[in-house]
Protein backbone atom coordinates (compact mmCIF):
# COMPACT_ATOMS: atom_id res chain seq x y z
CA UNK A 1 0.00 0.00 0.00
CA UNK A 2 2.45 2.65 1.17
CA UNK A 3 5.05 3.26 -1.44
CA UNK A 4 7.54 4.81 0.95
CA UNK A 5 10.38 2.71 2.27
CA UNK A 6 9.84 0.63 5.33
CA UNK A 7 10.92 2.08 8.59
CA UNK A 8 12.16 -0.30 11.25
CA UNK A 9 9.03 0.41 13.25
CA UNK A 10 6.76 -0.63 10.42
CA UNK A 11 8.84 -3.73 9.80
CA UNK A 12 8.44 -4.79 13.41
CA UNK A 13 4.73 -3.98 13.31
CA UNK A 14 4.21 -6.18 10.26
CA UNK A 15 6.27 -8.97 11.73
CA UNK A 16 4.12 -8.91 14.86
CA UNK A 17 0.87 -8.81 12.86
CA UNK A 18 1.99 -11.69 10.64
CA UNK A 19 2.96 -13.82 13.60
CA UNK A 20 -0.39 -13.10 15.26
CA UNK A 21 -2.30 -14.11 12.14
CA UNK A 22 -0.19 -17.26 11.76
CA UNK A 23 -0.78 -18.25 15.38
CA UNK A 24 -4.50 -17.66 14.94
CA UNK A 25 -4.72 -19.78 11.79
CA UNK A 26 -2.36 -22.58 12.75
CA UNK A 27 -2.82 -23.09 16.46
CA UNK A 28 -5.69 -25.65 16.34
CA UNK A 29 -3.99 -27.42 13.44
CA UNK A 30 -0.66 -27.73 15.21
CA UNK A 31 -2.50 -28.90 18.31
CA UNK A 32 -4.26 -31.75 16.53
CA UNK A 33 -0.99 -32.78 14.82
CA UNK A 34 0.67 -32.80 18.23
CA UNK A 35 -2.20 -34.81 19.67
CA UNK A 36 -1.97 -37.37 16.87
CA UNK A 37 1.70 -37.92 17.71
CA UNK A 38 1.06 -38.70 21.37
CA UNK A 39 1.24 -42.30 22.50
CA UNK A 40 -1.87 -43.64 24.29
CA UNK A 41 -0.28 -43.14 27.68
CA UNK A 42 0.63 -39.61 26.68
CA UNK A 43 -2.77 -38.48 25.40
CA UNK A 44 -3.93 -37.54 28.87
CA UNK A 45 -0.77 -35.66 29.84
CA UNK A 46 -2.61 -32.33 29.65
CA UNK A 47 0.34 -30.81 27.83
CA UNK A 48 0.37 -29.23 24.40
CA UNK A 49 3.31 -31.27 23.11
CA UNK A 50 3.83 -35.04 23.33
CA UNK A 51 6.60 -36.13 25.69
CA UNK A 52 7.90 -38.38 22.91
CA UNK A 53 6.78 -38.53 19.29
CA UNK A 54 4.94 -41.77 18.58
CA UNK A 55 3.40 -43.06 15.33
CA UNK A 56 1.19 -45.53 17.16
CA UNK A 57 -2.03 -43.71 16.30
CA UNK A 58 -1.26 -43.80 12.60
CA UNK A 59 -0.51 -47.52 12.82
CA UNK A 60 -3.78 -47.97 14.68
CA UNK A 61 -5.88 -46.38 11.93
CA UNK A 62 -4.06 -47.94 8.96
CA UNK A 63 -3.17 -51.42 10.18
CA UNK A 64 -4.41 -51.67 13.75
CA UNK A 65 -7.90 -52.32 15.04
CA UNK A 66 -9.22 -48.91 14.00
CA UNK A 67 -8.37 -49.70 10.38
CA UNK A 68 -11.62 -51.63 9.90
CA UNK A 69 -13.38 -48.36 10.61
CA UNK A 70 -11.02 -45.91 8.98
CA UNK A 71 -9.79 -47.46 5.72
CA UNK A 72 -13.25 -48.24 4.26
CA UNK A 73 -14.41 -44.79 5.38
CA UNK A 74 -11.51 -43.19 3.55
CA UNK A 75 -12.35 -45.10 0.37
CA UNK A 76 -16.03 -44.17 0.74
CA UNK A 77 -15.21 -40.51 1.25
CA UNK A 78 -12.91 -40.31 -1.75
CA UNK A 79 -15.25 -42.25 -4.05
CA UNK A 80 -18.50 -40.59 -3.06
CA UNK A 81 -17.07 -37.07 -3.07
CA UNK A 82 -15.36 -37.53 -6.44
CA UNK A 83 -18.52 -38.86 -8.09
CA UNK A 84 -20.75 -36.19 -6.53
CA UNK A 85 -18.25 -33.53 -7.69
CA UNK A 86 -17.97 -34.92 -11.21
CA UNK A 87 -21.73 -35.05 -11.73
CA UNK A 88 -22.17 -31.57 -10.31
CA UNK A 89 -19.41 -30.07 -12.45
CA UNK A 90 -20.73 -31.62 -15.68
CA UNK A 91 -24.30 -30.44 -15.04
CA UNK A 92 -23.11 -27.05 -13.83
CA UNK A 93 -20.89 -26.53 -16.86
CA UNK A 94 -23.88 -26.96 -19.18
CA UNK A 95 -26.02 -24.68 -17.03
CA UNK A 96 -23.37 -22.03 -16.53
CA UNK A 97 -22.68 -21.97 -20.26
CA UNK A 98 -26.37 -21.44 -20.98
CA UNK A 99 -26.74 -18.78 -18.31
CA UNK A 100 -23.69 -16.75 -19.24
CA UNK A 101 -23.85 -17.15 -23.00
CA UNK A 102 -27.51 -17.32 -23.98
CA UNK A 103 -30.34 -14.94 -23.34
CA UNK A 104 -33.48 -16.77 -22.36
CA UNK A 105 -36.39 -16.24 -19.99
CA UNK A 106 -35.83 -18.04 -16.71
CA UNK A 107 -32.09 -17.72 -16.38
CA UNK A 108 -32.42 -15.34 -13.43
CA UNK A 109 -34.72 -17.92 -11.91
CA UNK A 110 -32.13 -20.67 -12.34
CA UNK A 111 -29.43 -18.65 -10.59
CA UNK A 112 -31.76 -17.63 -7.79
CA UNK A 113 -32.83 -21.24 -7.37
CA UNK A 114 -29.21 -22.39 -7.08
CA UNK A 115 -28.76 -19.72 -4.43
CA UNK A 116 -31.88 -20.90 -2.64
CA UNK A 117 -30.75 -24.51 -2.62
CA UNK A 118 -27.38 -23.62 -1.15
CA UNK A 119 -28.99 -22.01 1.91
CA UNK A 120 -31.31 -24.97 2.38
CA UNK A 121 -30.92 -26.58 5.82
CA UNK A 122 -29.40 -30.02 5.32
CA UNK A 123 -31.40 -31.53 8.17
CA UNK A 124 -34.64 -30.63 6.37
CA UNK A 125 -33.47 -32.85 3.50
CA UNK A 126 -32.16 -35.57 5.82
CA UNK A 127 -35.42 -36.26 7.67
CA UNK A 128 -37.50 -37.24 4.61
CA UNK A 129 -34.58 -39.00 2.88
CA UNK A 130 -33.86 -41.11 5.95
CA UNK A 131 -37.35 -42.52 5.76
CA UNK A 132 -37.45 -42.82 1.96
CA UNK A 133 -33.98 -44.35 1.62
CA UNK A 134 -34.81 -47.08 4.16
CA UNK A 135 -37.89 -47.98 2.16
CA UNK A 136 -36.31 -48.10 -1.31
CA UNK A 137 -33.00 -49.62 -0.22
CA UNK A 138 -30.72 -46.63 -0.74
CA UNK A 139 -29.96 -46.33 2.97
CA UNK A 140 -26.27 -46.98 3.67
CA UNK A 141 -25.23 -47.07 0.00
CA UNK A 142 -22.91 -44.87 -2.08
CA UNK A 143 -25.76 -43.74 -4.31
CA UNK A 144 -27.77 -42.85 -1.21
CA UNK A 145 -25.11 -40.28 -0.34
CA UNK A 146 -24.17 -39.14 -3.85
CA UNK A 147 -27.72 -37.95 -4.57
CA UNK A 148 -28.08 -35.71 -1.50
CA UNK A 149 -24.45 -34.53 -1.92
CA UNK A 150 -25.57 -32.97 -5.19
CA UNK A 151 -27.59 -30.52 -3.11
CA UNK A 152 -24.25 -29.35 -1.69
CA UNK A 153 -22.04 -29.47 -4.79
CA UNK A 154 -24.37 -28.45 -7.61
CA UNK A 155 -25.50 -24.96 -6.50
CA UNK A 156 -22.00 -23.76 -5.70
CA UNK A 157 -20.72 -25.19 -8.99
CA UNK A 158 -23.39 -23.40 -10.99
CA UNK A 159 -22.58 -20.08 -9.39
CA UNK A 160 -18.86 -20.29 -9.44
CA UNK A 161 -18.83 -21.43 -13.06
CA UNK A 162 -21.37 -18.83 -14.15
CA UNK A 163 -19.12 -16.18 -12.63
CA UNK A 164 -16.06 -17.62 -14.37
CA UNK A 165 -17.78 -18.01 -17.73
CA UNK A 166 -18.98 -14.42 -17.67
CA UNK A 167 -15.38 -13.29 -17.83
CA UNK A 168 -14.54 -15.37 -20.89
CA UNK A 169 -14.24 -13.31 -24.09
CA UNK A 170 -16.57 -15.47 -26.15
CA UNK A 171 -15.99 -13.28 -29.25
CA UNK A 172 -12.68 -15.09 -29.64
CA UNK A 173 -14.57 -18.15 -30.76
CA UNK A 174 -16.13 -16.25 -33.65
CA UNK A 175 -12.81 -14.61 -34.38
CA UNK A 176 -11.21 -18.05 -34.71
CA UNK A 177 -13.98 -19.16 -37.06
CA UNK A 178 -13.52 -16.06 -39.18
CA UNK A 179 -9.86 -16.98 -39.35
CA UNK A 180 -10.84 -20.33 -40.84
CA UNK A 181 -11.19 -22.66 -37.85
CA UNK A 182 -14.10 -25.08 -37.85
CA UNK A 183 -16.56 -24.59 -35.01
CA UNK A 184 -15.17 -27.69 -33.28
CA UNK A 185 -11.61 -26.39 -33.62
CA UNK A 186 -12.71 -22.99 -32.34
CA UNK A 187 -14.30 -24.60 -29.34
CA UNK A 188 -11.46 -27.04 -28.72
CA UNK A 189 -8.54 -24.65 -29.25
CA UNK A 190 -10.00 -21.39 -27.96
CA UNK A 191 -12.84 -21.94 -25.54
CA UNK A 192 -11.69 -25.08 -23.71
CA UNK A 193 -8.32 -23.59 -22.62
CA UNK A 194 -10.11 -20.43 -21.47
CA UNK A 195 -12.80 -22.30 -19.58
CA UNK A 196 -10.88 -25.16 -18.03
CA UNK A 197 -9.22 -23.23 -15.17
CA UNK A 198 -12.68 -22.17 -14.02
CA UNK A 199 -14.02 -25.70 -14.30
CA UNK A 200 -11.04 -27.06 -12.39
CA UNK A 201 -11.34 -24.50 -9.58
CA UNK A 202 -15.05 -25.17 -9.33
CA UNK A 203 -14.36 -28.88 -9.00
CA UNK A 204 -11.96 -28.24 -6.11
CA UNK A 205 -14.42 -26.01 -4.27
CA UNK A 206 -17.30 -28.46 -4.80
CA UNK A 207 -15.12 -31.35 -3.64
CA UNK A 208 -14.27 -29.48 -0.41
CA UNK A 209 -17.92 -28.96 0.38
CA UNK A 210 -18.74 -32.63 -0.16
CA UNK A 211 -15.62 -33.69 1.78
CA UNK A 212 -16.73 -31.47 4.67
CA UNK A 213 -20.17 -33.05 5.01
CA UNK A 214 -21.02 -34.65 8.32
CA UNK A 215 -24.80 -34.58 8.72
CA UNK A 216 -25.70 -36.62 5.63
CA UNK A 217 -22.86 -38.96 6.49
CA UNK A 218 -24.04 -39.86 9.97
CA UNK A 219 -27.74 -39.83 9.15
CA UNK A 220 -27.90 -41.86 5.95
CA UNK A 221 -25.34 -44.57 6.68
CA UNK A 222 -25.00 -47.19 9.39
CA UNK A 223 -22.00 -49.35 8.46
CA UNK A 224 -18.67 -49.02 6.71
CA UNK A 225 -20.47 -49.82 3.44
CA UNK A 226 -20.90 -46.12 2.77
CA UNK A 227 -19.93 -44.17 5.90
CA UNK A 228 -17.56 -41.30 5.04
CA UNK A 229 -14.62 -40.25 7.23
CA UNK A 230 -16.12 -37.27 9.11
CA UNK A 231 -18.98 -39.49 10.22
CA UNK A 232 -16.68 -42.43 11.01
CA UNK A 233 -14.58 -40.24 13.34
CA UNK A 234 -17.40 -40.10 15.84
CA UNK A 235 -17.55 -43.90 15.95
CA UNK A 236 -13.92 -44.41 16.95
CA UNK A 237 -13.27 -46.11 20.23
CA UNK A 238 -10.10 -46.38 22.24
CA UNK A 239 -7.89 -49.46 22.51
CA UNK A 240 -10.00 -50.45 25.48
CA UNK A 241 -13.45 -49.27 26.38
CA UNK A 242 -12.11 -46.85 28.95
CA UNK A 243 -9.43 -45.32 26.83
CA UNK A 244 -9.89 -42.05 24.99
CA UNK A 245 -9.89 -42.58 21.22
CA UNK A 246 -8.53 -39.02 20.95
CA UNK A 247 -5.17 -40.06 19.52
CA UNK A 248 -6.66 -42.23 16.77
CA UNK A 249 -9.26 -39.57 15.92
CA UNK A 250 -6.54 -36.93 15.72
CA UNK A 251 -4.45 -39.12 13.40
CA UNK A 252 -7.44 -39.83 11.16
CA UNK A 253 -8.28 -36.13 11.17
CA UNK A 254 -4.77 -35.28 9.99
CA UNK A 255 -4.93 -37.88 7.22
CA UNK A 256 -8.15 -36.39 5.79
CA UNK A 257 -6.97 -32.83 6.29
CA UNK A 258 -3.58 -33.01 4.59
CA UNK A 259 -4.78 -33.56 1.00
CA UNK A 260 -7.26 -30.72 1.30
CA UNK A 261 -4.73 -28.32 2.77
CA UNK A 262 -2.25 -29.23 0.03
CA UNK A 263 -4.91 -28.51 -2.61
CA UNK A 264 -5.74 -25.20 -0.94
CA UNK A 265 -2.12 -24.15 -0.85
CA UNK A 266 -1.39 -25.22 -4.44
CA UNK A 267 -4.43 -23.51 -5.93
CA UNK A 268 -5.00 -20.69 -3.48
CA UNK A 269 -5.12 -17.96 -6.09
CA UNK A 270 -7.81 -19.70 -8.14
CA UNK A 271 -9.78 -20.76 -5.07
CA UNK A 272 -9.89 -17.24 -3.69
CA UNK A 273 -11.03 -15.95 -7.08
CA UNK A 274 -13.70 -18.65 -7.30
CA UNK A 275 -14.97 -18.13 -3.77
CA UNK A 276 -15.23 -14.39 -3.98
CA UNK A 277 -16.49 -13.93 -7.53
CA UNK A 278 -19.43 -16.24 -7.71
CA UNK A 279 -19.84 -18.00 -4.46
CA UNK A 280 -20.58 -16.85 -1.01
CA UNK A 281 -20.72 -20.05 0.93
CA UNK A 282 -18.20 -21.74 3.18
Amino acid sequence: MDTGKLTTGRKILWAVVSVLVAVYALFPVVWIISLSLKSPSDVGNQQFWPTAVSWENYELIFTGQASELFVPALINSIGICLIATAIAVVLATLTAYAVSRLDFPGKKFILTMALGVSIFPVISIVTPLFNLWSRIGLYDTWLGLIIPYLSLTLPISIWTLAAFFRQIPWELEQAAQVDGATSWQAFRKVIVPLASPGVFTTAIIAFFIAWNDFLYGISLTSTSAARPVPAALSFFTGASQFEEPAGAIAAAAIVVTIPVVVLVLLFQRQIVAGLTSGAVKG
Binding site: W31, P230, V260, V272
Partner: peptide, 23 residues
Protein backbone atom coordinates in the same frame (compact mmCIF):
# COMPACT_ATOMS: atom_id res chain seq x y z
CA UNK B 1 -0.74 -14.06 4.94
CA UNK B 2 -3.31 -15.17 2.42
CA UNK B 3 -1.91 -18.69 2.40
CA UNK B 4 -2.06 -18.94 6.18
CA UNK B 5 -5.54 -17.46 6.29
CA UNK B 6 -6.85 -20.10 3.88
CA UNK B 7 -5.83 -23.02 6.09
CA UNK B 8 -8.77 -22.89 8.52
CA UNK B 9 -11.06 -22.76 5.47
CA UNK B 10 -9.60 -26.06 4.26
CA UNK B 11 -10.10 -27.85 7.58
CA UNK B 12 -13.17 -30.06 7.84
CA UNK B 13 -15.66 -28.64 10.36
CA UNK B 14 -15.72 -31.90 12.31
CA UNK B 15 -11.92 -31.94 12.53
CA UNK B 16 -11.89 -28.37 13.81
CA UNK B 17 -14.57 -29.33 16.33
CA UNK B 18 -12.49 -32.28 17.58
CA UNK B 19 -9.39 -30.10 17.82
CA UNK B 20 -11.16 -27.53 19.97
CA UNK B 21 -12.92 -30.18 21.99
CA UNK B 22 -9.70 -32.02 22.85
CA UNK B 23 -7.93 -28.75 23.66
Amino acid sequence: LRTVILIPYGIITVVSAFSWKYA
